[in-house]
Amino acid sequence: MSIQHFRVALIPFFAAFCLPVFAHPETLVKVKDAEDQLGARVGYIELDLNSGKILESFRPEERFPMMSTFKVLLCGAVLSRVDAGQEQLGRRIHYSQNDLVEYSPVTEKHLTDGMTVRELCSAAITMSDNTAANLLLTTIGGPKELTAFLHNMGDHVTRLDRWEPELNEAIPNDERDTTMPAAMATTLRKLLTGELLTLASRQQLIDWMEADKVAGPLLRSALPAGWFIADKSGAGERGSRGIIAALGPDGKPSRIVVIYTTGSQATMDERNRQIAEIGASLIKHW
């Protein structure tokens, strides 16, 4: 067993022997301040990774656009098919120029040779490549099948209805392509620590998230040296922004954090800054 596999296998073990965790309302004060600064709703939840206990939450059962955070769930569904012998990570998928959609920095470079399922998941999570996500959605049967996968996990809230990039439209009061912070946090925890996926697939999923290259201005910008984070960000229309993450000190994750916002007129930089400040408060009061 590799060191990384050992780390993920012992996530519940280490967490069980940690000192009790206590909620700190100071972080919620910052979440509410972010709402004021952005002029928009902000949803927040913080779960203990081992027990699933909610440590703090704000608007945990209000719907927010998922945006690209759905790509972690998508690759979880792909990995479940791999575990069941219905898919192979090494299978190569070929596609054409007509398949390319807006923001496809990886797939646009491989029109000639195609990409493997493993490479597509890596591109979808680490670079948020939209064509990679659409190609992977095709392998599982489309958005409705991802929703069905989530329902089978016990998540009857999260739903995907459309493809990239239309799913980022974020129309107010439109339930399409949305989740709730509580539902997303619980589902992410199941994917990373539950028995739904094999140990190898859980490790692969967290490795992809740990290698995320496009979430630097968010929670990662607030992390002290030595902290662990595996995350996936999302951005959408109407001032929408979000991030889902597993993080913790001492090089291992111990909490799940989900943050979503929508309806702001603020710039992307300002949305990023507010999420980073929430992260800084979380870490300060850990």
Rank of each mutant, 00 (worst) to 15 (best):
P25I: 13
L28Q: 02
L28K: 07
Q37Y: 10
L38N: 08
G39C: 00
G43R: 10
I45R: 03
E46C: 05
D48Y: 00
D48P: 00
G52V: 04
K53I: 00
I54W: 02
I54P: 04
L55A: 06
F58D: 15
P60M: 10
E61F: 14
P65V: 10
M67H: 10
T69G: 03
C75V: 10
C75R: 07
C75E: 06
V78F: 05
S80C: 03
V82N: 04
D83A: 00
Q86K: 12
E87M: 14
Q88C: 07
L89R: 02
G90F: 14
R91G: 08
S96A: 07
Q97H: 08
V101T: 08
E102F: 10
T107C: 01
T112K: 13
D113W: 07
G114E: 04
G114V: 11
G114L: 07
R118T: 15
R118C: 15
E119V: 13
L120A: 03
L120H: 02
M127P: 03
M127W: 03
D129P: 10
N130G: 02
T131I: 13
L135T: 01
L137E: 05
L137Q: 04
T138K: 15
P143I: 02
P143Y: 02
L146Y: 00
T147Q: 15
T147I: 15
N152S: 13
M153L: 13
G154M: 02
H156T: 03
V157I: 06
T158M: 01
D161L: 00
R162Y: 04
R162A: 11
P165Y: 01
N168G: 06
A170M: 13
P172F: 04
D174T: 07
T179L: 11
P181S: 08
T186I: 13
T186R: 04
L188S: 10
L188V: 05
K190F: 14
L191T: 13
L199Q: 01
A200T: 08
Q204W: 11
Q204G: 08
W208S: 10
E210M: 10
E210C: 15
D212Q: 14
D212L: 13
K213M: 05
G216H: 08
L218I: 11
L219C: 09
L219R: 12
R220W: 06
S221N: 03
A235Y: 10
A235F: 11
A235P: 08
G236T: 07
E237L: 13
G239R: 07
G239Q: 03
S240R: 06
R241L: 07
P249L: 10
P253K: 09
R255Q: 03
V258R: 05
Y260K: 04
S264E: 10
T267A: 12
M268W: 05
R273N: 14
Q274S: 08
I275T: 11
E277Q: 15
G279T: 08
L282A: 07
I283H: 07
H285P: 03
H285C: 05
